[in-house]
Amino acid sequence: MSDTQWPRYEVFVQERPGRPHQHAGSVHAPDPEMALLNARDVFVRRPECASLWVAPSATVRGGTAEELSQLVAAPVSEEGSPDIEYLVFAKLEERGTLAHVGEVHATGPDDALAAAKAAASRPPLALWVVPAARVERTLPEEAASMFDPSRHKPFRDQAFYHIQTALRRLRRDPLPIASLQNRGKKR
């Protein structure tokens, strides 16, 4: 058996209810359940997160603006061809990231990408389509144990440390020791 770092799963984080899930990065995991748990440990060390989605990277069909400009509209689907739901993620701003914008139904990934591009309100800078059936999501009843703990770790917030105050105080009331001379200690 060959040793691998396990497959990659793309991770989408919803910061607050009602906001779109945004692409945050990826995790390596052997299966969807571990991907969800790993995503929580990697991406939810700080608030805020209300919901987490993961999908195998291999199932993501993406296109950048350049690639999409060459995309030909898919032929009209024939009777009996599959009708698959895809989630659509689009990057619309230079400084933004891919965010969930909606769903399309299509016969396959290329068709889905074309449909997503056609449905976009303006030319996206990047576009991803992911089969909805392959997206693993946190359930609402899990939210407390998945996401609350990150709110109770104030020491991860730089505001927990009052360094400027301490340094200012030291400058005002210097320590009562002579400062050590350190000549010639250069290595």
């Binding site: 770092q5 396990w6 995790v27 390596h28 995991a29 748990l37 790993n38 440990d41 990697v42 060390r45 703990p149 109770h152 770790k153």
Partner: peptide
């Protein structure tokens, strides 16, 4: 593996808390 390092550090952190 890296993900398990991060995951287990979380458990240690929680236990300490």
């Amino acid at each position: 593996i890296l993900e398990e390092d991060i995951a287990f550090a979380n458990i240690a952190l929680d236990e300490m808390g």
